[in-house]
Every structure is written in structure tokens, then in C-alpha cells.
């Protein structure tokens, strides 16, 4: 039942981050919301790869090499989330450098002061 709880936790974090992205006015708060939603998505994917009572997919003292297939959790979601976390950092860095540049132009962090794309 462990992965059920973490699945619900991940969905709740995703929804909170999405809500923050939609309602906050401060640009840095919007990026924080993105980062929370990112963490939520990763928790959802890892929860979907969990198998009942299994352990990490690393062959050592705890896992026998002969019947490893019966003893380990799904390695594919772990691999995908591993790369997704690094990409999340890179995307966050690009967003924050855009914010720094925008602040240098307009001296404001409030999204209401950026009307160029409004219609």
C-alpha cells in the first residue's frame, strides 16, 4: 500500500505547484511553483514503478544474481526520473536567468508589469 500513499502525495504536490503557477504574481514564486510540480511528477512516476515488498535494482548482498528478476523494483522509471531531475535543474536555471534579464529591463518582479504579450 506504500506506493498508493506516495502516488496521492505526488498528485497533491503537482496540483499545488500548478495552482501556484496560475495564481501567483511574483515571477520567482511562479518558478518555485514549477519546481514543486516537477517534484510531484517525479514522485508519481517512481510510485508507478514500485513493486510490493521488492528492493532496489542493485545486485549485492541483499539481492541474489540468480533470481534477481523476482526481487527488484522496476528500474525503468528510476532511470527516466534520474534524467528528468537533471533536465529540471537546467530548465530552472534558464527560467531564472530570463527573470534576471527581465528585471534588469523593467525593475519589477510582478507579472502585471509585463504587458507585451497581453491581448
Amino acid at each position: 500500500m506504500i506506493s498508493m500513499y506516495t502516488l496521492i502525495l505526488g498528485i497533491a504536490l503537482l496540483v499545488i505547484g500548478f495552482y501556484a503557477m496560475l495564481t501567483r504574481k511574483n515571477l520567482i514564486k511562479i518558478v518555485i511553483g514549477f519546481s514543486i510540480a516537477d517534484t510531484g511528477t517525479h514522485i508519481i512516476i517512481v510510485s508507478l514503478g514500485y513493486l510490493r515488498g521488492k528492493t532496489a535494482p542493485i545486485i549485492d548482498g541483499a539481492v541474489n544474481a540468480v533470481n534477481a528478476v523476482q526481487e527488484v523494483v522496476d528500474p525503468i522509471p528510476s532511470a527516466l526520473v534520474l534524467t528528468a531531475i537533471v533536465i529540471g535543474l537546467a530548465v530552472t536555471a534558464v527560467m531564472l536567468s530570463f527573470i534576471v534579464e527581465m528585471y534588469k529591463k523593467n525593475k519589477s518582479l510582478s507579472i502585471d508589469d509585463y504587458q507585451e504579450l497581453k491581448w
Partner: peptide, 8 residues
Amino acid sequence: LILGSPDV
């Protein structure tokens, strides 16, 4: 870690 993904 609890979900069995120490790498992540």
C-alpha cells in the same frame, strides 16, 4: 529511498 530507488 523508501520506494527502492537509491539512485534517484
